[in-house]
């Protein structure tokens, strides 16, 4: 854990008074915290704490798909994203801010085509460029050696762990500078979990990771900083080591030690 060393790190995502509602019902009360560049920032908390709502607001999927109303401000590299409208601009944002969902969601096509999907839409047409992207992305997701001889296999025929790494690779193929992960390992075996965590550690030099997780141990293992959400409220945010050993709030300690949630 490198948490306390980050005081001079650049702010990648600045959330200020972010409030999320679904048809008037509050999912997240105004929350303010920063996510620093080139770190793994985990968000922990029990179900219904608003952590996934927050994550899906970072690439505006909550706004477009779930009917969320978001107030406040979310700045990515000092640019406000909550005012972004229109298909073209949203697509551009989502190429910069990738997401991996809780359950592996390969599209019903080959491994190669799963990964080439995003770059193709973004305008990459040359076979050689796509080939290179596919290989690089699969290598980053620690999957290349397993599948390099069968890239035309259906993505849906892989094991759950492989499917999720394929989804990570697919996201990486767009060269994002932020990757959102929504409980990415909740359905995975320990080895696949380890490989995904390893990928995050290796890639965080270039990519900022926001990791929503139900697994506090995972947050302790990989996250530089951790935010604790509870019942739609940001309880506290700080270096992971501090959150786990000397939390400011009683509730944080209770949750981490498994007294509720």
């Amino acid at each position: 854990m490198s948490g306390d060393s980050g005081t001079y790190a650049l702010v990648k995502i600045a959330a200020k008074d972010v409030e999320i509602r679904y048809r008037g019902k509050v999912a997240l009360k105004p929350a303010t915290f920063d996510i620093r560049s080139s770190t793994i920032h985990s968000i922990i908390g029990p179900a219904g704490s608003g952590k996934t709502s927050f994550l899906r607001s970072l690439n505006l999927m909550s706004l477009e798909l779930d009917g969320a109303a978001i107030k406040g401000s979310i700045k990515v590299d000092d640019d406000e994203i909550l005012t972004i409208r229109g298909a073209e601009k949203m697509a551009k944002l989502r190429r910069r801010i990738g997401i991996v969902f809780a359950t592996p969601q390969p599209l019903p096509r080959s491994i190669y085509e799963n990964i080439a999907f995003g770059p193709r839409i973004a305008g990459t047409r040359k076979k050689a460029d796509l080939d290179a992207l596919v290989e690089e992305s699969l290598r980053s997701a620690h999957m290349w050696d397993e599948v390099k001889d069968r890239l035309d296999l259906m993505g849906t025929s892989l094991s759950g762990g492989q499917q999720q790494r394929l989804c990570l690779a697919r996201t990486l193929a767009l060269k994002p500078d932020i990757v959102l992960l929504d409980e990415p390992c909740s359905a995975l075996d320990p080895i696949s979990t380890y490989k995904i965590e390893q990928s995050m550690q290796e890639l965080k030099g270039n990519i900022t990771f926001v990791l929503v997780t139900n697994n506090t141990k995972q947050a302790a293992r990989v996250a530089d900083r951790t935010a604790f959400f509870l019942m739609g409220e940001l309880v506290e945010d700080g270096p992971t080591a501090k959150i786990f050993t000397r939390p400011n709030d009683q509730r944080t300690g209770d949750y981490i030690e498994g007294r509720f949630g």
Binding site: E88, A91, I121
Partner: peptide, 13 residues
Amino acid sequence: SYREVALSLGASK
């Protein structure tokens, strides 16, 4: 989920 995946990868609706 197919639609969500496509949108999340930069596709328009």
